[in-house]
Write a protein that binds this DNA or RNA. Structure first.
Lengths: 251, 251
DNA sequence: CCTTACGTTTTGTCAGACAAAGCGCCTCCG
DNA sequence: CGGAGGCGCTTTGTCTGACAAAACGTAAGG
């Protein structure tokens, strides 16, 4: 299925892109810093200039670098954020990136037929068998997210007992390591809601507390829906940001 | 500053990328459809294969297409959404894309010194002169967003009287056409809030109504902060979505 | 009828070359 | 001595051609 799943990712250009971005994120190349010229950088990275340029094109398109003919390639002068909805995937990484201890309470795993709405979003036949994972995520032992994850049985097959070991685990890592499913993209719908009685009691907050509700469907690289997540975030616990692409490049 | 500002965007590869994406968005190439082979498609678009591949690389990276060696390039089988936080920029386009009439109420434009917090986010000296635009955006004559836009005087110079004509205009288009400022990227912070007395009266909703608050800073292609926006969205008016990149490509 | 081997098609990567656009340095002139 | 203009170098943008790797369809053989 997946071509190689090697070190960096799928494809040399993607690996080069990640390597360059890591240098920027780590601070080795600070904003305003000028990158080596393309031929030089290509030989440094051990790839051809065409491959390097594919990586640079994506980075420039994402706003990491700015390229001007005759002048050079510079790291864009723009603040970088953690806790970014675009890149941070999963609640565990979100909490860990804030330097807090991540934990799980009230884990509940069961299977059954999918409801009509959830089946439609997962693009599976109604009444198909799905596995459901409900749990409360804690940051420094404080409940911050109540989540309900729905996975089609066709994804996890019969090796579903591994789901029981999600005590503190990352669901995405388990999907990748146990079932060979690599989540490539997710489509999240964001809505502010007030905590109802049940959710409030789970999160140990007063009824009516402000929550951020994320309804998300994740897809693998073939476009197959592999995971549906309902996440109720305690509003004050996180600072959620999104990078938006400007109209200058998106019609 | 900007190199050519031609038809599609800045650069041939970017223009090619937009042309392909338009075909997908318009439905000419539906999910699962196979694109012509690269040499053929390159000649169809009138560019070289290297340029075409830069465009395809970005599209594949953004999840629009899936490429497999030996097989071909296919349009990814994944639902496309309008009202996407990533691509839809500005409230006007958001409302128009939903097929509703966009309008403005209570426009108020004034200038003065920037506050400490706003100056810091715009990366300008404290007390710098800024222009402030406050207005209520309506969809089908119903208030849906109350926004406060802050623009440094250094951006708009002395031609600021143009700001008064924002009756139904798009601020981004005005920035581009009047002042030559192309917004490339924006960083938005999302938070659910309850409407306070003042905001509620502006939006004609009861105090305590659920709102989605977006605090956004926009940057041009050089990384200069050009616009700070506070937006209070009526929660039930929109369906806000975000495309998230999977851990499989971001680590 | 199933399995296997082959060839074709298609994407992935590389190398080299030329054009266009900034930037810095030098020279020339006042 | 100071400023302005021109020249050349550097760097990105684009094109051309080529070969390798991978996947699919087809045909031959058991």
């Amino acid at each position: 299925m997946s071509s190689q799943g090697g070190p960096g990712g799928r494809g040399l250009g993607t690996a080069v892109r990640d390597r360059i971005r890591e240098r920027i994120e780590s601070g080795a190349w600070r904003p305003g810093h000028r990158l080596p010229a393309e031929p030089h950088l290509a030989s440094l990275l051990g790839v051809s200039r065409a491959t390097l340029r594919e990586a640079l094109k994506v980075l420039a398109d994402d706003g990491w670098i700015t390229r001007t003919p005759g002048a050079g390639t510079y790291v864009t002068h723009r603040p970088r954020l953690k806790n970014n909805l675009d890149v941070n995937f999963g609640v565990s990484e979100l909490i860990e990136s804030m330097g807090m201890r991540v934990g799980t309470q009230g884990l509940r795993v069961y299977d059954g037929p999918a409801g009509a709405s959830e089946a439609a979003r997962l693009a599976i036949p109604p009444e198909s068998r799905v596995f459901v994972i409900e749990r409360i995520r804690t940051a420094d032992y404080e409940p911050v997210v109540f989540s309900r994850d729905v996975i089609p049985a066709s994804i996890v097959g019969e090796g579903a007992q591994a789901l029981d070991s999600l005590g503190q685990g990352t669901l995405y890592r388990m999907l990748e390591e146990e079932f060979g499913v690599v989540v490539n993209q997710g489509l999240a719908e964001i809505k502010p809601v007030k905590a109802d009685r049940w959710t409030a009691s789970q999160l140990r907050v007063p009824t009516g507390t402000m929550l951020l509700y994320l309804l998300q469907v994740d897809y693998d690289d073939t476009g197959r829906a592999v995971l549906l997540s309902h996440e109720h975030h305690v509003a004050d616990a996180f600072e959620i940001t999104v990078v938006r692409r400007g109209p200058g490049r998106n019609t």
